[in-house]
Design a protein around this nucleic acid. Structure first.
Lengths: 295, 295
DNA sequence: GTAGTTCATGCCGTGAAGGTATCAATCGAT
DNA sequence: ATCGATTGATACCTTCACGGCATGAACTAC
């Protein structure tokens, strides 16, 4: 035999009123069915919960103990639908966010602040991975949202430009080019030792720089995949490097960032990327909050 | 609208099987009513919990969240009857025990050990109070059981002798009587300064000593209600005192305990005392465990 | 003793839950 | 592409559990 939530509500009402009639009134019912509810509950529980005669009603010790459990059950039962609704509407939940390292630190912070502000109940789990890994993780449902650089397959993913920034030339602070009072142009770099992006592991930057700075690969002395590594090599005086403007935030010492003339003023793009048909309401809500936002 | 525990069980089954037919079989029912159960649950909760078409069943994020709550509810709901039964049978619960101070420390420890051993789920709350206070507290339902000394009203209370011990004479270790190679007799105490029990506050000992040791009150220098106080006065050389044998355990320095010839060998009684009609099952069980036990 | 209070019980009608049969949609095999 | 198999949803029926009303039983108070 088993008991019901209604019976628990009956027990709580009677325990609080210590009077069947009043308890029944509070439950919008009449006294007889309430009496039977309690009887059935006692039968189901296998213990007398209320000590009652025609004059007074009192909880037995077993009733006290069971009442506490009943209250716990009812508290959860009442709050659970609201929780489910919040999750369903996306106001509560989990979004797993992939992001590329170093270069996105500044944007990532602002993004998380924005979400914290508007969706405090949405928990964001962070996964550091390069663009290619993000695409695989999105396809495999391992992350919900990526913060990555083109190109993406528009068949599989929706995406939106989130941030656009300039390409700068990172040089050692003692470098002669720092004396220049105009933007650097490709011709200035003739014979300059270059720290360059890996064609495989940093394909976006490789392609971007090649298209933005003709003749750039003349004297490549290092091939690197991470912006941070480039900056430390510049700091060590190994050469100059093309980096996104946000690299300035990384605070690598003895490096100066020089403006660079490019065909497009801010050619470095960072996109939001997500599966075309996601079933995560929190993701929908996150996208809605970020809609139109440029960081 | 509201939901039921049955619906929660349905949800859990479907979530575990991810298949309505198998889940229904596990619940010993057919598939159609289970489908309706889930539909009603979703309506009551106000959120879609399962994503289902004719080919596959999956939990929505809201379903995941709600499922966790459902499991919590069902876990409590299943364990609660057992808890109530344990309380009802007295194997779990609370017994509030009154005890008189110092003189009962040794017996109290053994008593609690015995209960701990046989009734580990019964919690014993301790209340230090003199016999008179215990009687009032028992009558007022403030304690369930007393550890006290006669006399009691047998109309109101049941009682049972739990411990019987000798009455000793406490003297300073330098006292001439310590040289005696036989029990002290009343005549030995002629002219001896006595630390005596208060007639009001320690009536049991007062009456007991008066009946056991004729002429005892000849030279009373202090009137005291607590055994511990008596011993410290003896230790300070203020006189001699009649104390129960268990006072030896209190470890008051420079006090020696001498055997005393009394009409009855072990005249000091300690009783268990409880209301004749208690409604505390844990008390019944405690009495049953202690039945016949002499400490 | 009588009236009033309060919980339990008997009886009845409604409605909700489960069962059977069937539909609708989808997948896989031929 | 067609057909059968699978699976969740729906229609319809029957049962029984629940709530309401009337009343009983036990006790209190005056």
């Amino acid at each position: 035999m088993n008991y019901t939530l209604e019976q628990l509500r009956g027990l709580v009402a009677v325990a609080e009123e210590l009077h069947f009639g009043r308890a029944a009134a509070r439950l919008r019912m009449t006294q007889p069915p309430l009496s039977r509810q309690i009887q059935k509950l006692e039968a189901a529980v296998g213990a007398q919960l209320l000590d009652r005669d025609n004059r007074r009603v009192a909880l037995t010790p077993a009733g006290e103990a069971f009442l506490a459990e009943a209250r716990r059950i009812l508290a959860i039962a009442e709050s659970a639908p609201e929780l489910a609704q919040r999750v369903s509407s996306g106001f509560s939940g989990l979004v797993r966010l992939g992001f590329t390292s170093a270069s996105t630190f500044g944007i990532l912070g602002r993004l998380l602040n924005e979400l914290e502000l508007h969706l405090p109940e949405v928990h964001v789990e962070l996964y550091e991975m390069v663009t290619r890994e993000q695409i695989a993780a999105l396809a495999g449902q391992d992350i919900d949202l990526g913060l990555a650089r083109p190109p993406f397959d528009p068949e599989m993913f929706d995406s939106r430009l989130l941030h656009r920034e300039a390409l700068l030339l990172a040089v050692h602070e003692s470098h002669p080019l720092t004396e220049l009072s105009r933007p650097v142009v490709p011709a200035d770099l003739a014979g300059e030792p270059l720290i360059f992006h890996s064609q495989q592991k940093a394909r976006y930057f490789y392609d971007l720089v090649v298209s933005m700075v003709p003749l750039a690969q003349e004297r490549v002395v290092h091939t690197v995949s991470q912006v941070m590594t480039m900056l430390w090599l510049v700091s060590a005086g190994r050469g100059v490097a093309f980096v996104p403007a946000s690299a300035q935030l990384l605070g690598v010492p003895a490096v100066t960032y020089l403006p660079l003339r490019t065909p497009i003023p801010q050619p470095v793009e960072l996109h939001l990327l997500w599966p075309r048909h996601s079933h995560n309401p929190a993701l929908e809500r996150v996208l809605q909050v970020l809609d139109g936002l440029m960081l």
